[in-house]
């Protein structure tokens, strides 16, 4: 593969295999994501979706294959992994805000201590992103004082303050009450409109239909099918995809 083709890719995964002890959780997964692409990953519970996207920022180590993020390969080397993580934002199902810090402090911590930004600049940056997720007025509260939807939007803002090139979302709305799902999805749509490269694990098929460039369907550690939403929903190729869609779309 030549250098220019490689550098146009935000994420390039080839021949990825991973085991938890003897359990083969990812089986020969390959996936290339060009810059600015929005990829939605779906599949039954336990199919390895979380494990796959956690391999992209080194939260999980892989045993075989290559994971290249913005031209840098994840080798398991600590300093290297950290450099990659600074370019990759992640939003978790359980928000994982730091409960002992205010919303603003949650958002300034990494810019200050990873990017070495002066505190004033970090605060200005954090406020800018809190405005973007529409909760600047909550800046001085603690996460425990916010609703689930607000917390998840803070988590998105917190990841954005590192000005990442790629954003990973692991079921960002699954832990939310139904009435809060919308506000989080809207924030994600707005983010997609800015041209951010996004890999989103979600069961929100409405979001997948309107936002995704491609949908990846996983089952039992394998990528079973990759297709643009138009094809994926109307004309799935694989029997397992059909079955999954049958269950989820009802």
């Amino acid at each position: 593969m030549n250098a220019t083709a490689g550098s146009a890719l935000a994420v390039e995964i080839t021949g990825l295999n991973k085991w938890f002890k003897t359990f083969h959780v990812l089986r020969d997964v390959s996936l290339s994501v060009p810059r600015k692409e929005r990829v939605v990953i779906c599949g039954p519970s336990g199919s390895g979706k979380s494990t796959l996207i956690r391999c992209i920022n080194g939260l999980e180590r892989h045993e075989e294959g290559r994971v290249v993020v913005e031209g840098a390969e994840l080798t398991g080397d600590e300093a290297h992994t950290q450099a990659v993580r600074a370019n990759v934002g992640m939003v978790f199902q359980q928000f994982n805000l730091f409960p002992h810090l205010t919303v603003l402090e949650n958002c300034t911590l990494a810019p200050q201590w990873v990017r070495k930004m002066p505190r004033k600049d970090a605060e200005a940056l954090a406020m800018q992103y809190l405005e973007r997720v529409h909760i600047p007025e909550q800046a001085l509260k603690y996460p425990g004082q916010l609703s689930g939807g607000q917390q998840q939007r803070v988590a998105i803002a917190r990841a954005l303050t590192m000005q990442p090139r790629i954003m990973l979302f692991d079921e960002p709305t699954s832990a939310l009450d139904p009435e809060m799902i919308k506000e989080v999805l809207e924030t994600m749509v707005e983010l997609a409109e800015t041209g951010m490269t996004m890999l989103v694990v979600t069961h929100e098929m409405g979001f997948a239909k309107t936002v995704a460039d491609r949908i990846v369907f996983m089952d039992a550690g394998e990528i079973v099918e990759i297709a643009p939403p138009s094809e994926f929903f109307t004309n799935p190729k694989n029997a397992r995809t059909k079955e999954f869609l049958g269950q989820i779309l009802r």
Binding site: E78, Q82, F92, F98, H100, L109, W113, V114, A159
Partner: peptide, 29 residues
Amino acid sequence: GKGQYEAAAALGLGYWRSMLFVILPQALR
């Protein structure tokens, strides 16, 4: 919680900075 360790790591905070700013303040409390 494990999520706190992971969130700190995902932000690019290394081991010591994760411990100092995220984990230890909560653990000691």
